[in-house]
Write a protein that binds this DNA or RNA. Structure first.
Lengths: 227, 227
DNA sequence: TACTAAAGTGTTAATAATACACTAACAATA
DNA sequence: TATTGTTAGTGTATTATTAACACTTTAGTA
């Protein structure tokens, strides 16, 4: 490939390398978790990092992010959105690397990290109790967390964290976990139902030793803005 | 520079090249304008493009964006924010190029493009009447326009478009031009003043053949969120 | 059948958003 | 200096949204 720049015609440009890093949130045990990989060797040995990889010449960033997630975590078919592009000169001590961060929300019940023995060092980690992180990945996580907090206020984005059907209390728990605060039950239900994003199913969740809860589902499991 | 990837150790990675493109909005003659350069040669000859350039190994993206703007438009010392990173495989027919778009708002009175004869092909162009655009720059402009429209609703970002002191009517005009709709004068003033972003100066704008208007200024000329 | 635990439900008050029309002050000019 | 033209400046009533707050219902279990 030949590219012109203003100084040398027909020269190959060796610029910063480009990577994608994927920030995958889920909720487990009532906690907001993020998918991390423990690095096994090199200068970042024993530190934790977001699943990431180099962007190839023949893939877009969206594709690169999907491919990384598939290869490193066995996760397929989820919607990811671009978060931000990080470019500190020293963010990777091994060389100049620009990273485009992507983020997504998944229901971790759908994915079984344990079956992937090949990656024994991949885990869901509580986002409020991060281990030693490699690169600037702590910063990326915090950036993503801010985006998540604001986006749940004006979109249906939490559908990614919830199973096909769910109770309103389960949905409220997701909001409370992400926002880190209690929400009034009546106001929450009123507001969510008024948005018209959900439909009631005819089923209820039984088995608990209390009154069964109605099960709801999202009308659309794709991003919809509500404001 | 040597970088490892998973397949070849100690190999240099030749990945996509990285550029920044800068999207600079201003208001002139009651219109929202964007700074464009006409391309003089090559496959995109006679098409228009955002000021852009290759990211060097020793500069961050923020720095690269600043440097581009200084070099190509003689514009210095403005706050730019990262917009989005574009990566379509075919976005530049000359080779694989990823572009990180930045955007900023300026008061064009402060800058005099005419003095820069060196760039006879740089102009403020009405954003609603774009000429033939090179690359995916039309898409970038539309993306930036959406960001601008939403951001003026929850921040003081318009300070960039306004001079040091201004009347409330001038400020309202800026909002109307960007949003493309009329706003009620009384409600606008009530809301803006209630946000507490402005201070009244002791001066008025005279000379017009009607009642003089009070001049206001921003308390802070830096990004502040209001919601 | 009594107890436990979460599900489910309405009203009131406070705040924010919208719709809407006249008076004030200066410049120009008759 | 009186009149006219033009934009600046202002308030109130209505509606919509958000926030605060407590009791009844229903299934499971003892």
């Amino acid at each position: 490939m030949k590219i012109q720049n203003s100084k040398n015609k027909n020269s190959i440009i060796i610029g910063p390398a480009v990577a994608v890093d994927t920030l995958i949130f889920t909720i487990r045990d009532g906690k907001l978790m993020v998918l991390l990989i423990e690095i096994g060797s090199g200068p970042y040995k024993n530190k934790w990092a977001l699943p990431g990889g180099i962007v190839q010449l023949n893939e877009t960033l969206d594709e690169a992010a999907k491919n990384v997630l598939k290869k490193k975590a066995g996760i397929n078919g989820i919607y990811m959105e671009q978060l931000y592009t990080f470019s500190d000169l020293k963010r990777d001590t091994r060389g100049r690397m620009i990273s485009v961060a992507y983020f997504a929300l998944v229901n971790s019940d759908r994915f079984n990290l344990k079956t992937m023995d090949y990656y024994s060092d991949i885990e869901w980690i509580n986002v409020r109790k991060l281990p030693k992180m490699a690169f600037d990945h702590k910063e990326i996580i915090n950036y993503g967390l801010d985006r998540l907090k604001s986006k749940i206020e004006y979109s249906n984005i939490v559908y990614g964290l919830l199973p096909e059907t769910f109770t309103l209390t389960e949905m409220q728990n997701v909001y409370e976990i992400i926002l880190g605060k209690k929400i009034d039950k009546r106001n929450f239900r009123k507001k969510i139902l008024a948005l018209g994003l959900l439909t009631e199913t005819k089923k209820v969740k039984t088995g608990a030793k209390h009154r069964p809860a109605k099960l709801y589902k999202f009308k659309k499991r794709e991003l919809v803005f509500t404001k």
